[in-house]
Computed example of a mutant assay.
Amino acid sequence: MKSCLVVDDSKVIRKVARHILEALGFTVREAADGREALASCIEALPAVILLDWNMPVMSGMDFLRALRDAGLPKRPKVVFCTTESDMAHIRAAIEAGADEYVMKPFDRDTLESKLQIVGLA
């Protein structure tokens, strides 16, 4: 079964994403910030990470850099999920290692299409 780590400081967003992802056949783990997410990835690497940009403790961008530098055997797909919509943010996310980008709020169809693009739906 495919696994997803949902990283967002909003419990509501994590709950909505979990509901959608479980309906799509994913097992889901959650993290409230980048530091929790990094520890979770070191423990068990997910197939995909749904990642918020703005979080306390460790932002999504800082998490991406830490994930890249963690020396893990492989890199999961990363879908940034954020309200940041300008091209500079999107370009920065892709350059930092994100595979796709989805705007909040999102629905099942939007998230499913992004997961298809990265080869996981």
Rank of each mutant, 00 (worst) to 15 (best):
D86T: 13
G60F: 06
L50Q: 01
E30L: 05
K74R: 15
L51W: 03
A66I: 00
K15W: 10
D62T: 14
E22A: 15
V16P: 03
E36D: 13
R75G: 07
M58E: 01
A92L: 07
M55W: 02
P73K: 14
S40F: 04
I13W: 13
A93K: 12
L38A: 05
T83V: 15
D52I: 05
K114C: 14
R35Y: 03
E84W: 10
D52P: 02
S59T: 10
I42R: 09
S40P: 00
A96V: 10
F63H: 05
G60C: 09
H89T: 08
E100V: 04
T82N: 09
A39P: 03
F106P: 04
A23Y: 04
E84A: 15
E30N: 06
T82R: 04
L72C: 05
C41Y: 01
R75L: 13
E84N: 13
T83E: 02
P105I: 14
D62E: 14
D52F: 05
L38Y: 00
E36L: 02
A17L: 07
P46V: 10
A32T: 00
H19S: 15
P73R: 07
M103Q: 12
T83F: 05
T83L: 12
I117T: 15
R14P: 01
D69F: 11
S40A: 11
T83N: 11
E36P: 00
A23C: 13
F106G: 09
R35S: 08
G71T: 03
A70M: 00
R18A: 14
V48G: 02
M61F: 08
K104S: 04
